[in-house]
Write a protein that binds this DNA or RNA. Structure first.
Lengths: 203, 203
DNA sequence: ATATTTGTTAACCAAATGGTTAAACTATAT
DNA sequence: ATATAGTTTAACCATTTGGTTAACAAATAT
């Protein structure tokens, strides 16, 4: 028998924990299920991560650290707003198709545990809107964009890109589409969402 | 002592259950906490609602039955798309400011329990997109609207209106706004979101 | 008045759950 | 070879949790 050793088990646990936590949330997840999925003894979870909360935080930070760079792309990049909107929309939807659980997971757990975000904001790599704000204000002043507050534009961009994933079951029901057709709708959005936004804000 | 009697307790339980379930979700909610909040014995919960799942479903259906009429307003009404978008945006944001937990609660639990929606769709009062679809197609054909699929427009409308509430903690952090300032942003959206959409789809 | 149905409570219960412990196993250092 | 430090397991534990029960109180029907 004799498992390969240290580093491996830890990663195995994290991977299993990710699956279970993202599917069932902090409260719905069971330590035993995580252990089973990782194919190890339950005591190992505590050996490597002390307790459920810490294991959960490891998973959460992991997920957030995947999401953050996506957002920085639109907030910190130098290209004009229109270009950034187009790139972000396409990139983000591709990204989420690969990691479909992430946005819902983060939003959900952040709602459940609001002071959680304080810890995140401390992190210097937390996305910051300042640069985006200056850019929007500047393009508005130059008459490239209709007057709009950067915060509102940012919310709109996020909403149009993220919501279809977060509310997928509901939207599938309302639009009467099956899995396949819905995925098709999302594929189309890679370009259409950008068009929708640009049409609205460009003078 | 002698509590006022029957009908009352049942409503008391539902109200308490609503608060707890919407704040903590199905898994995070505790029957004891609901009983405490309702000021009654835990056994009463089972007397009136048999078990946790049924109590939860009562709360869920209750929440959904508040949301559904809002959606029907935009789907089934006869006025032109532009007018419907303006009315819906304003009405919906007002509605949610009164019931801030509802969208997140519904989306969350629907993600956790996808076959849950099947039961909802059976209900004849479940919102249906068909009429909206015909209307959009018609206005596109008449040249009133740019070409857009009704499903995509519907998703966009929902996204722009609902997402700011669902992702509130995250968006507050990204936009660096406190409770007061964020509420202000939402207030502004009552009209701005409609403008944003109309600009984008009108020819 | 009295029996019966309905509402309410305190005490209880079995199962599940997060977490611990002590012993065994493995690899590495001496 | 042997001590040492790190890894893994089975068994165990205290607490929590959803749910039940039996007795009691209050209406309502007879």
């Amino acid at each position: 028998m004799a498992r390969k050793k240290d580093e491996n088990t830890e990663a195995l646990i994290l991977e299993a924990a990710k699956t279970v936590f993202q599917a069932k949330g902090m409260d719905g997840a069971r330590m035993q299920e995580i252990a089973d999925k990782a194919g190890i003894n339950k005591a190992m979870l505590h050996y490597y991560y002390r307790n459920k909360k810490l294991l959960f935080e490891a998973v959460f930070n992991n997920a957030f650290s995947l999401l953050a760079p996506q957002l920085k792309a639109i907030l910190n990049d130098d290209s004009p707003i229109e270009e950034k909107v187009r790139n972000f929309t396409s990139d983000y939807i591709s990204f989420i198709i690969d990691y479909p659980y992430i946005p819902n997971f983060i939003i959900q757990e952040l709602n459940r545990n609001p002071d959680f975000i304080l810890k995140l904001k401390d992190n210097p790599s937390f996305p910051n809107i300042d640069k985006f704000k200056k850019q929007v204000d500047e393009e508005v002043k130059q008459g490239i964009l209709r007057p709009i507050r950067a915060e509102q534009l940012f919310i709109n961009i996020m909403a149009l890109n993220v919501f279809p994933f977060v509310a997928k079951p509901l939207l599938k029901a309302f639009t009467n589409t099956g899995e396949e057709a819905y995925h098709q709708l999302l594929e189309v959005r890679k370009t259409e969402v950008a068009d929708f936004i640009i049409h609205s804000i460009k003078t």
